[in-house]
């Protein structure tokens, strides 16, 4: 059993303490927006926010996540209002297959929260998600659009 706070809701999930947070989110909490890509903290598809920090949820256990505020892509916006990163993603038509984009958006949202006007170098350092479709050019443009708004 683990007590997790996901998108503002307290949930008691029937999982072993060493279950990766990713699978607890996807299979036990039923929130499938967070994606599995590698399971070894390499790709970033599973990125969520833990107390506001971008975190690869495949790489931490539910035990470590207890007591933290977890936000997934489903909880990034406020109700039906989109987060500014999601809005920019639509305006810029960023996603291709879209599979990496939940993680990408979560990583970018956390970056902009810490650093509202990131330089290209800041982006390069903070955003290390894999996108096999290759949306990086649009991702960068969208970040700059938000930063200059």
């Amino acid at each position: 059993m683990a007590n997790l706070t996901i998108n503002g809701k307290s949930l008691t999930l029937d999982v072993e303490p060493d279950t990766p947070l990713l699978w607890a989110i996807r299979e036990n909490a039923g929130l499938t927006g967070t994606k599995y890509g590698c399971g070894i903290a390499q790709c970033g598809a599973c990125t969520v926010h833990m107390d506001g920090v971008a975190t690869r949820s495949c790489g931490i256990s539910v035990a470590e996540a207890e007591g933290k505020k977890i936000t997934t892509i489903e909880g990034l916006g406020a109700g039906s209002t989109l987060h500014k990163v999601q809005e920019a993603w639509i305006a810029q038509d960023v996603p291709q297959c879209g599979y990496c984009q939940s993680g990408m958006i979560m990583a970018v949202a956390a970056l902009l929260n810490d650093n509202p006007k990131p330089t290209d170098a800041d982006i390069d350092e903070a955003i290390t998600n894999i996108c096999r479709c290759g949306t990086f050019q649009q991702v960068r443009e969208a970040i700059h659009t938000i930063a200059s708004a």
Partner: peptide
């Protein structure tokens, strides 16, 4: 694209 809105909210 027609499929973008769903893709940005998971």
């Amino acid at each position: 694209r027609l499929d973008t809105p769903d893709k940005v909210v998971g």
